[in-house]
């Protein structure tokens, strides 16, 4: 038995070493770094230059605000859309269900760069979206150069990419609700719409909460879309998110101490917002 345990650990050791070196150590080290002034030749303990700066840095406040705006607008829209999609996918009237399921899930497996390039083309000043707007007689929108429009593009892109993914999770939740509960409600004279609001939604609550928490964590770390689609958080810093701000501080300015403090702030916010969601959605006895 001992021999067998040793063998198991021997096989695990290479992974554990890498895990230690590239996961655990950076996490610990960055916490220490977050207290150091890394802008001088000799790194010195000076939390005022890192944690203190968070409170007064307008660029950080801007990134935080942008991230929260995306969170507050995009996550609810996407989850609502995902719930509707899941309900439609679950409908017995739907034909070629497998095809639809694949189609909605497909955006997740498309490469980030490819999808970002597509969105840049679609929302380009001379792109197809503006062509369509002009075609139906509306004014065109400078999607990537107007701050609000650029934010909208980010939200649309995120929703396109992740709504199907969440719909598939919610669909699994829907399929776990037994059919005869709905039959009982039908016999009770409860309309389909009321069945949805008074039965389906409450029964889906745990699954929807899971989706919200996953989306909150994802949004707090948001990086690729503003980096790739709106060209590093442009126009100006209009779509700079916390993830992008962290990248700029760490790998453009090489201010590792400040970047570490930002990283810990992102993690703390993600945990706090997720816990708030779980608390709001808790089962009340």
């Amino acid at each position: 038995m001992r021999q067998r345990t040793q063998t198991a650990y021997a096989f695990l050791t290479p992974y554990l070493l890498i895990f230690l070196a590239f996961w655990i150590w950076p996490i610990i080290n960055s916490f220490w770094l977050s207290f150091l002034n890394t802008r001088s030749a000799n790194w010195t303990f000076n939390p005022r230059m890192t944690w203190g700066r968070l409170l007064v840095d307008p660029a950080f406040a801007n990134a935080l605000q942008n991230t929260l705006v995306i969170l507050v607008i995009q996550v609810p829209i996407m989850i609502a859309l995902a719930t509707v999609l899941a309900t439609l996918l679950n409908s017995p009237a739907l034909k070629v269900r497998g095809l639809f399921r694949f189609a909605f899930f497909a955006p997740v497996v498309v490469g980030e760069v490819a999808y970002a390039a597509m969105f840049r083309l679609l929302f380009n000043e001379f792109g197809i979206i503006n062509k369509m707007l002009a075609g139906i007689g509306l004014t065109t929108i400078p999607w990537l150069s107007d701050p609000n429009a650029a934010m909208a593009v980010i939200i649309i892109a995120l929703t396109w990419r992740w709504a199907g993914y969440n719909a598939i999770i919610i669909l699994a939740g829907l399929q776990s609700i037994p059919e005869d509960v709905y039959e009982a409600a039908t016999l009770d004279g409860v309309s389909k719409v009321r069945q949805f609001f008074f039965m389906t939604l409450p029964l889906l609550k745990p699954v929807i909460l899971l989706c919200v928490v996953l989306s909150v964590i994802g949004t707090m770390q948001l990086f690729s879309e503003p980096f790739l689609i709106t060209n590093r958080g442009g126009p100006g810093q209009a779509t700079e998110t916390l993830g992008l701000f962290l990248y700029r501080q760490g790998f453009n300015a090489f201010n590792f101490g400040y970047a570490s403090a930002v990283a810990y702030t992102i993690a703390a916010l993600a945990i706090a917002i997720s816990l708030l969601n779980l608390w709001l959605g808790r089962e009340r006895e």
Binding site: D180, V181, E183, A184, A185, D188, V190, F198, L203
Partner: peptide
Amino acid sequence: AMVFQSYALYPHMTVEQNLSFGLRMT
């Protein structure tokens, strides 16, 4: 009115709400 093999109770409602759900909704 029908009674199902699996009971088909509304799992998120109390017994009282289960009993009254249909009538409340109508």
